[in-house]
Amino acid sequence: MLSTIVCHDQNLVIGYENKMPWHLPEDLKRVKQLTTGNTIVMGRNTFLSLGRPLPNRRNVVLTRDKDFAAEGVEVIHSLDDISRLDGHVFIFGGQNLYEQTMDLVDDMYVTVIEAKHMGDAFFPAYSFLDWEVESIEAGTTEPPHKFMHLVRRSRD
């Protein structure tokens, strides 16, 4: 299964200067719960912003840089390589990877920050005509936010 996991604000901002423009521990806990024991695929800049592989999951970096290597991660060089990964795979960012895989994913785990932030990286626009809300849950901490699980509607 191929899923997207993302946190964005009301303007679809996901980052600013290669960092998240908010601190939301409740979302980080959810990400850990959903992705532990699974595979996360991220672009090189997203990996560099983390500074290390995330523990207890398979970390895969997609990059065009044939010389890129980092301890604790697997490196792939094409979107086709994603389809060869076993198990539940989560697209983990950033903007370019989200854009390239939006039409490929089966579902999305989306955290929406109920505010607007300065940003230079964005999640692609999506429509509820294409996605069915499987679940929605209000966050319990500040800043105000909600967790959504969206499943792709049938493509016929």
Score class of each variant (00 low, 15 high):
138 A>E: 15
109 Y>M: 07
135 S>Y: 06
146 K>A: 15
55 P>C: 01
118 M>G: 04
99 E>C: 02
136 I>C: 14
117 H>V: 07
99 E>Q: 11
94 G>S: 08
97 L>G: 07
82 I>E: 03
148 M>F: 15
143 P>V: 03
129 L>N: 15
64 R>D: 04
82 I>Y: 09
103 D>Y: 08
103 D>M: 13
132 E>F: 11
65 D>Y: 00
84 R>L: 15
91 I>N: 06
78 S>G: 07
101 T>H: 05
74 E>C: 05
69 A>Y: 12
67 D>S: 15
113 I>G: 09
80 D>E: 15
116 K>F: 10
106 D>A: 13
69 A>V: 12
78 S>P: 05
127 S>A: 09
116 K>E: 15
94 G>R: 06
68 F>A: 02
97 L>E: 05
49 S>Y: 00
129 L>W: 14
72 G>H: 05
98 Y>V: 10
61 V>Y: 13
70 A>D: 04
97 L>P: 05
149 H>V: 06
139 G>W: 02
121 A>T: 10
117 H>A: 10
50 L>C: 08
101 T>I: 02
140 T>L: 14
57 R>K: 14
105 V>Q: 08
64 R>H: 05
77 H>I: 11
84 R>M: 10
50 L>E: 13
49 S>K: 03
88 H>D: 10
53 P>I: 02
77 H>K: 14
121 A>K: 09
139 G>V: 05
137 E>I: 13
126 Y>I: 09
137 E>A: 09
117 H>P: 04
131 W>D: 00
148 M>L: 15
123 F>Q: 10
78 S>Q: 09
69 A>W: 06
99 E>N: 15
89 V>I: 13
64 R>L: 03
100 Q>W: 02
144 P>Y: 01
126 Y>W: 09
137 E>N: 06
106 D>R: 14
93 G>Q: 01
84 R>P: 02
74 E>D: 15
67 D>K: 12
117 H>M: 13
109 Y>R: 06
95 Q>D: 09
147 F>D: 04
83 S>P: 00
113 I>R: 13
64 R>A: 01
59 N>T: 02
139 G>I: 01
82 I>V: 08
84 R>K: 11
67 D>G: 14
127 S>R: 02
48 L>Y: 06
121 A>S: 13
135 S>H: 11
53 P>C: 02
134 E>L: 13
94 G>E: 01
104 L>F: 13
144 P>S: 09
104 L>D: 15
77 H>A: 06
132 E>I: 12
126 Y>Q: 03
120 D>Q: 01
87 G>L: 07
95 Q>G: 05
87 G>H: 03
68 F>P: 03
112 V>W: 12
126 Y>A: 07
49 S>C: 03
69 A>F: 10
89 V>H: 09
81 D>T: 11
76 I>S: 01
53 P>W: 00
70 A>K: 04
104 L>W: 15
62 L>K: 08
112 V>A: 03
93 G>L: 00
84 R>I: 11
137 E>P: 10
133 V>S: 11
96 N>E: 04
113 I>M: 08
142 E>R: 09
68 F>L: 04
124 P>W: 00
122 F>G: 07
86 D>V: 03
147 F>R: 05
